[in-house]
Design a binder for these strands. Structure first.
Lengths: 143, 143
DNA sequence: TTGAAATTGATAAATCGTCTCAAAAAGAAT
DNA sequence: ATTCTTTTTGAGACGATTTATCAATTTCAA
């Protein structure tokens, strides 16, 4: 049995609700995805090339987008590419990004999240997801 | 004299510091940009086609990116396109975005900004800029 | 096992933004 | 004002990323 049984069940549930099918490729991609903090489609394509040389790039894109709809992943544009963040194993996390060296630090902050809810409620919105990115210089690059 | 004299001066100052030139196109694009809350390069291309049918799309991209460097604009990925936000006339603002109808509500929240500074400091970062986007359903689309 | 419906893989195509480069414009020096 | 150097422009080519197409395959319920 897979190490990611719980998430696998979550995916199957989503598939069932939407008349989608559980395939070998989706299982393979989910397994690889859950080992990552964030990954691009291209990176995953190369990672999985050994396990399944015939796995197509289009399938990876389709599947990562499926994960987003299922709430396991979240797409984020960084540079020219789309990063797919793993949001399945922990609460939502945000990013501190060094504009000089590209270093990424992940963090969570409940107070900020609570204030976000307040702002949304004040404007009649129901939050589904959010994105918070802080850009600046890390301690090393400040000098 | 233009309605946007102050911002025009700000741009000229940036141009002077970087050995760049003040051109008719940059003036035209700045004038159009400052009337917007946010705009894409493509939208601006169509808006300005009447005033100057020969204005090229590449020039618009180049100029909007210039505005980003000058601190008048801020680029933001939304969907597949890049939105250029007007940040010249007010402090930094964040976005509430309806995932259904695309409606965008802008807001500011000092408390959130303060917490962001705390998080950054705790991780040794000095914030230059940030981006906060809340995605959800607006009151109309929730039903 | 069968059959309808969904998925896949390969590649074409679309999209978006940047690069190229000759011609034009800006702005400093004369 | 004219000249000269540097920057900018416009048009389209180009590159990178993602999506669409479609015949062949796979899933899964009956």
């Amino acid at each position: 049995m897979s190490k990611h049984a719980k998430e696998m069940e979550g995916l199957k549930e989503h598939l069932g609700k939407h008349q989608l099918k559980f395939t070998r490729q989706r299982e393979l991609i989910l397994d690889a995805f859950l080992k990552q903090e964030h990954i691009t489609a291209e990176e995953m394509y190369h990672q999985l090339a050994r396990k399944d040389p015939h796995l197509g790039l289009a399938t990876i894109y389709r599947t990562l987008n499926l994960f987003c709809e299922a709430g396991l992943a979240q797409a984020r544009h960084f540079g020219t590419q789309t990063q797919y963040d793993n949001v399945s194993h922990k609460g939502h996390h945000d990013h501190l990004i060094c504009t000089d060296c590209g270093k990424i630090v992940e963090f969570e902050n409940c107070d900020i999240e609570r204030l976000q809810e307040e702002v949304a409620a004040r404007n009649g919105f129901t939050i589904q997801t959010h994105r918070l990115e802080l850009y600046g210089l890390c301690s090393r690059c400040r000098h």
